[in-house]
Amino acid sequence: MTAEGSPAGSPAIRFDGTSVVYPNGVKGLDAVDLEVPRGELVVVVGLSGAGKSTLLRAVNGLVRITGGDVVVDGRSVRASHGAGLRDLRASVGMIFQDYRLVRRLSVLQNVLVGRVARVPTWRQLAGLWPKEDVALALDSLDRVGLADRAYVKAGQLSGGQQQRVGIARALAQKPAVILADEPVASLDPVTSRQVMDDLQRINRDLGITTLVNLHFLDLAKEYAERIIGLSQGRVVFDGAGAGVTADDFAEIYGRHPTAEDVLEAQVAL
């Protein structure tokens, strides 16, 4: 499982003076310039409302970019429409805080949703998924350790398992990029680590460029090769994950970290 069609050399994602102004006038992103090289695992931190989700959603065009552009795998998001945009989205997997699985469908059917852009619609409606796609979906489930749950209803799994199904769905896309928007915010500390471990292993094994929004600072430091700090839609910090100090966080958050900003403090509760 390697990324489909990645022109070598260019960065996986390039934000080019990207701005997002929502229809109600709120600025989500303010002229962001950023390059994410292939295979990097970047963690985005920032207060609630800083623009983390907007940054991720600009990459697959779920929000309308109103200034500048985002270039994914050499393709302009802003210039992509219709079939072109769907094709671009197919090369970008997304993982959500609330998993977003079809609870009444089986785990396998949920993972196959990752193949919608690559399989003819009539085959999907008829339930006639090609053998290779089913094999790929099972493979993806295997990567998150859930192959034995393939035929269970998604709604019957625990939160952590559902999130790993979400990861498998993204993997089934054979993506060049994975976006994870607060993937562990609904999970307990132990499960959070398991899910982050999965994301890290996939990033390392398959070389998929990964952008993760995280709230907890210690988790960010532990898993990030590189940390990007956002505040009011602007990049206010960009540095190696390991070297981040409390002062750096104070810079990003506009205050010093408290117990609420670290995962381990919750274990103590």
Partner: peptide, 8 residues
């Protein structure tokens, strides 16, 4: 979520 996967 389905749109994000490239669904029509």
């Amino acid at each position: 979520a389905v749109r994000a996967s490239g669904g029509n």
